[in-house]
Amino acid sequence: MNLGKQFKEGLITNNPVLVQVLGMCSTMAITTSFFNGLGMGLAVLVILTLSNVIISAIRKIVPDKIRIAMFIVVIAGFVTMVDLLIQAFLPDLAKSLGVFIPLIVVNCIILGRAESFSYKNGVVASFFDGIFQGFGYTVVLLIMCIIRELLGAGTFGGGILGPVNAAGTHMGIQIIPSQFPIGMLTLPVGGFLVLGTLIAAMQWALSKSKNKEESK
């Protein structure tokens, strides 16, 4: 077991969003404010870690043929728990994430990690895999939120910081004066464009570091 290597894989070289390109729906849909991104990222991190641990613990007694069905039941159970907890304690977050919390069930990152990692590895390694992969996902969500919010609305930290509007939500701190931002970026279009650019940047960075290793 190599924690440093697993950490690097989750965050950079095997990042769930930018390299494995999994879980795109939620990545693009909810990254419109900082609070949404943080909430969604942490929810996925918790569910991924718990389901990784359970799946790895039961991996020897589950028959190979029905393993996908078992994974889905385990994941759906944890998603329901997290969904109910968010609805009870963070109603604002539940409202702005809407249908995307129950949809974590079909988020390919969780099923993908169950199939490719925790079904083959021990409980402790799966636990850390869940934390690191979830962390990598959260970091990408936050980067997307910051870019889309700053360029699209000119604010930072929407949902947690800044003045409160009539509906009772925090508007974020205005950094770029309100007549300049590109409003398009907070709309669905922005999700596609920003994620495309981020993946391209990641491919550029990875190919550059690969060239460097080869020239050594």
């Binding site: 596609f192 495309g196 993946i199 391209a200 940047a201």
Partner: peptide
């Protein structure tokens, strides 16, 4: 570097 997913995402955008 835009090969594969990035260019597809921009198209979709």
């Amino acid at each position: 570097n835009w090969d594969g997913f990035p260019i597809a995402l921009v198209t979709a955008g």
